[in-house]
Design a protein around this nucleic acid. Structure first.
Length: 575
RNA sequence: GGGCGCGUAGCAUAGCCUGGAUAAUGCACUGGCCUCCUAAGCCAGGGACCGCGGGUUCGAAUCCUGCCGCGCCCGCCA
């Protein structure tokens, strides 16, 4: 109820100055009510007792009296137990809804545009994407969509694991497999583990692999060609998964570790210049204030290993420099699991201390918890290995297909298959996005695909129901953009309140990088709609009521569709 | 041992940043509602010492602090 607070504030301001209360003493008190049963906006007057030397009850009464009729047409005001309660006036609310109705952006404002880099997904070359990449991909993609909608230029960066010592064995394995077959034929499901097994058991293979790493780092053309085959094969796989998921990432967003390889010595040089770099057991490291290891000794961030190789930390630092110097961004989001919190904290510290980032740079680790199985442990396949993401997506669509076939047999095979795709993928994404990302979440098919509760299908169903109203009577949705809205029924008011809160929920979701705040509001809207729809006939009503209700339906559908789209979830017209 | 995070009805969660009233939502449970726009739904009801103890405050799920429990991280992986 941000709008109502802002509408009331000036009215209250003049009253408070009449009563001789300083702005500082009351300004923060006016806020959305904690319980909508009381009011939309409330002001507890208890802390004013000290200033006004009266009881909260008397103060609230006095303010109410002084406000007089100034709030007419905006809200109704009452005084209860030392609280001033403000309830939105139906005409005032209807006015806002009409603004939203005629607005393509549904009253969502844009911010001054910034260039925001979002680091997400980050699968590994020569491996299948697995469940470990799910949350980063889903959350990162939602943030990409949300912040773009908020007016920013988002630069997605997909830091695929495409470099480092494992590639020696991967390339040698590729040679053993018969390169002439072409990269299309590489079977990623066992490629990495086969190579690893050979590396561990076959010393001849292992030494070839080590030699190959050296040749790779020397950019030997033949080796790079083989490496490229592995990358290309993997990109085909990544893109297949991204397309199935409906994720925005493309090959243009690939920023693998190899991209920064040539910049790594420069990072070492720069850190050497600052005098931060120290030597420890042959490695070049930075010691940071406040970090201790298990034994209580200072814990370093390793910049260059004793063997001359580099770590992830160095790549991250090179990447930070690249973003500032080449990408032109000062806002970095890292959508990476919570277990890497310490790593990022240390990298950011070094980057700031070395002046790679000044105070204007916002570098944020957007962390998230684990995907858990119903057994309470980290989700794994029956054999204990990582669950392949593609399998997970296929199963979701398959399960959705079976449900849709049962619930709505009238759909054609083609339409059912489209709908199943939207429902299945939407269900997986929504399950992830609808709870606070910092918590672990439990992966449960039955729950996420249920049509009851805070699930994607429930929201999609609400949207589809509205679409069917319009298609039933062949009403052109654009024709009601200028309709007058009248909120005469209690449930129309409730729906109106839910819809009005959409922009502020979205803003809050953006600023805290928490998609669940948007999801929660969408669920509230869908619930309010279902409740309204039950008792307020739309097509069966007449005159201005019919026009008004059609407008409410259109606004609800567009809000749900927009909101789901911002989360990366499709809204079927029928289901 | 140190650091970070989490702990809210049987289960899953929101609210915590920025303190405010009878702690919100969903699942599950109980009872009602389809000659009527998708019952894939709606309405009503029961169910919570907000992990435990201190402190700050007129007021604490929310802020501070000490415990307890769980998870993750803690030197050449990413």
């Amino acid at each position: 109820m941000r709008n109502l607070v802002e509408a009331i504030r000036p009215l209250l301001g003049s009253v408070m100055s009449q009563l001789g209360v300083a702005e500082l003493d009351w300004n923060d008190l006016l806020a959305g009510s904690t319980d909508s049963a009381f009011a939309d906006v409330a002001m507890p007057c208890h802390s004013l007792s000290r200033v006004m030397r009266k009881s909260p009850n008397v103060i609230a009464d006095e303010i109410l009296e002084t406000l007089g009729s100034s709030t007419d047409g905006v809200c109704e005001v009452s005084s209860v137990n030392g609280f001033l309660n403000f309830s939105a006036d139906s005409r005032w609310l209807a006015g806002l809804l009409q603004d939203a109705l005629s607005d393509d952006r549904l009253r969502v404002s844009t911010e001054e545009s910034r260039v925001i880099v979002i680091d997400y997904s980050s699968p590994n070359v020569a491996k299948h994407m697995h469940v470990g990449h799910l949350r980063s991909t889903v959350i990162g993609d939602a943030l990409n969509r949300m912040l773009t909608h908020k007016g920013h230029r988002v630069v997605p960066e997909n830091h695929i694991g495409d470099w480092g010592t494992p590639f020696g064995m991967l390339i040698e394995h590729l040679i053993d497999m018969g390169v002439e077959k072409g990269s299309q034929d590489i079977d990623l499901s066992t490629f990495y583990s086969d190579a690893r097994a050979k590396f561990d058991s076959d010393s001849e293979f292992a030494s070839r692999s080590r030699a190959r790493v050296v040749r790779m780092q020397a950019s030997e053309p033949e080796t790079i060609e083989l490496w490229q085959m592995l990358v290309d094969r993997s990109l085909i796989h990544f893109n297949e998964v991204y397309q199935r998921m409906g994720v925005l990432l493309t090959d243009d967003d690939i920023a693998g570790e190899s991209k920064y390889e040539s910049a790594l010595p420069g990072v070492v040089d720069k850190l050497t210049e600052t005098g931060m770099l120290e030597e420890s057991d042959g490695a070049k490291v930075v010691y940071l204030e406040g970090w201790k290891n298990r034994d209580g000794d200072p814990l370093p961030l390793i910049i260059q290993k004793a063997d001359g190789g580099y770590n992830y930390a160095t790549t991250d630092l090179a990447c930070i420099l690249d973003r500032i110097e080449n990408v032109g961004s000062r806002d970095f989001l890292y959508v990476v699991g919570a277990e890497q919190a310490q790593h990022f904290s240390m990298v950011f510290d070094v980057a700031r201390n070395a002046d790679f980032m000044d105070e204007e740079v916002n570098s944020i680790h957007v962390s998230f918890g684990l995907v858990m199985g119903t057994d309470g442990k980290k989700l794994a396949s029956r054999t204990g290995g990582a669950v392949h993401l593609n399998d997970l997506l296929l199963e979701a669509v398959e399960r959705a297909d079976a449900i849709v076939a049962q619930k709505n047999p009238s759909l054609s095979d083609e339409e059912r298959s489209e709908v199943a795709n939207m429902l299945g993928i939407g269900a997986i994404k929504y399950a992830d996005l609808s709870t606070d990302r910092t918590n672990n979440y439990t992966f449960e098919w039955e729950k996420m695909l249920s049509f009851d509760g805070n699930t994607a299908p429930y929201l999609q169903y609400a949207h589809a129901r509205i679409c069917s109203i319009f298609s039933k009577d062949g009403i052109d949705r654009n024709s009601i953009r200028e309709a007058n809205i009248y909120l005469n029924h209690e449930r129309e008011m409730a729906l109106g309140r839910a819809l009005i809160a959409f922009p502020e929920a979205f803003d809050s979701a953006c600023s805290s990088h928490s998609p669940h705040k948007l999801a929660t509001q969408l669920h509230t809207i869908a619930q309010a709609f279902a409740s309204f729809y039950e008792v307020c006939p739309v097509l069966g009503s007449e005159g201005e009521t019919r026009g008004s209700r059609l407008a409410l339906c259109d606004l609800t559908a567009r809000t749900l569709q927009t909101g789901l789209d911002l989360l990366g979830i499709a809204s079927p017209q029928r289901m």
